[in-house]
């Protein structure tokens, strides 16, 4: 009798344990599922945030309102990504942010070269080659990385855009510019003068390098003051660096601007002429 009672008791507690385990795994299963969904999107946002903090924060500011320390040196001022005063970002589609902003195509080098030469020849005002001050990240970050930036930017302003989802087909490798052979710096004085002038125009008007670099007291402060680059920097190094900064320093804030060989040569020669003392 006593034994049978014990058996029943055991059966009951065993039953309780089974039911409890079943319920518990059901709950855990469900929460895990939702966890997976949110953790996937939050991990995209986190990756995007990390990139933002390296490549964007100095101009757009830590909260994205456009108050980075370098904003002071920029005209136009950096975009307020939070839309606190006017709605701009909120009206853009995810594709707009990805394509028009982060992956913007800079004018074809041959086309800009032609326009510059024309202006230099006719002694007319140099054409302002690319309107927005912000560099493209097309040549610096992988397609997937630029999408993670979209995911992060979406958390900064009100919007009805669908949640960013990166398909497996999107490339995760950064664009690679193979090591460029340094050109010869021997050339006729006249050719050098033309290239230096072209380099100067590319530096200030096409690629807006002054947004981040100061020359003789004018320009931004994200990167080094280049006022003395002519006596500081070795031309071969400058050429390699501006052609592909990430090949020399993988985590540098300087984006790869996608310079053509001719453009990199012209800008290197221009920087080589800068020897005035720094005023900063």
């Amino acid at each position: 009798m006593e034994g049978a009672a014990m058996g029943k008791g055991r059966q009951f507690s065993l039953g309780c344990v089974v039911v409890f385990v079943a319920l518990f795994s059901l709950i855990v299963g469900c929460t895990n599922k939702t966890d997976n969904d949110t953790s996937q999107s939050s991990s995209l946002v986190m990756q995007g945030k990390e990139l933002f903090m390296n490549y964007c924060v100095h101009c757009h500011g830590p909260s994205g309102v456009g108050d980075g320390f370098n904003a002071l040196y920029l005209d136009p001022r950096p975009r307020d990504l939070t839309d606190s005063i006017e709605v701009f970002m909120g009206d853009l589609s995810n594709d707009d942010i990805y394509g028009m902003i982060l992956s913007r195509d800079i004018m074809d080098p041959e086309e800009s070269e032609r326009l510059l030469d024309e202006a230099l020849e006719n002694d007319t005002e140099l054409p302002f080659l690319v309107p927005p001050a912000m560099p493209t990240f097309k040549y610096t970050l992988s397609d997937a990385e630029r999408w993670t930036l979209v995911a992060y930017l979406r958390t900064l302003h009100k919007n009805d855009a669908p949640q960013v989802d990166i398909p497996a087909t999107v490339s995760t490798t950064r664009p690679i510019v193979s090591g460029r052979k340094v050109p010869s710096w021997d050339m006729a004085e006249e050719e050098k003068i033309t290239l230096v002038e072209r380099g100067k125009a590319l530096f200030s008007d096409k690629y807006n390098c002054v947004g981040c670099h100061m020359i003789a007291g004018y320009g931004g402060k994200v990167g080094p003051d280049l006022s003395q680059s002519g006596r500081r920097l070795a031309s071969d190094w400058t050429y390699q660096w501006i052609s592909n900064p990430q090949a020399i320093s993988s985590d540098t804030k300087m984006p790869n601007l996608g310079l053509s060989e001719n453009e990199a040569k012209a800008i290197t020669l221009y920087l080589g002429t800068l020897v005035s003392p720094s005023t900063s």
Binding site: H58, F69, P224, R232, L233, A234, D236, W237
Partner: peptide, 27 residues
């Protein structure tokens, strides 16, 4: 490879002539 010989020399003798900043800091 980056810096000219003349500038390297100057950096050792007159290090305050051009001060390279810590660019990991904001600003």
């Amino acid at each position: 490879a980056k810096l000219t010989r003349e500038f390297l020399y100057e950096s050792l003798v007159k290090p305050d002539a051009y001060v390279y900043l810590d660019f990991t800091k904001l600003p």
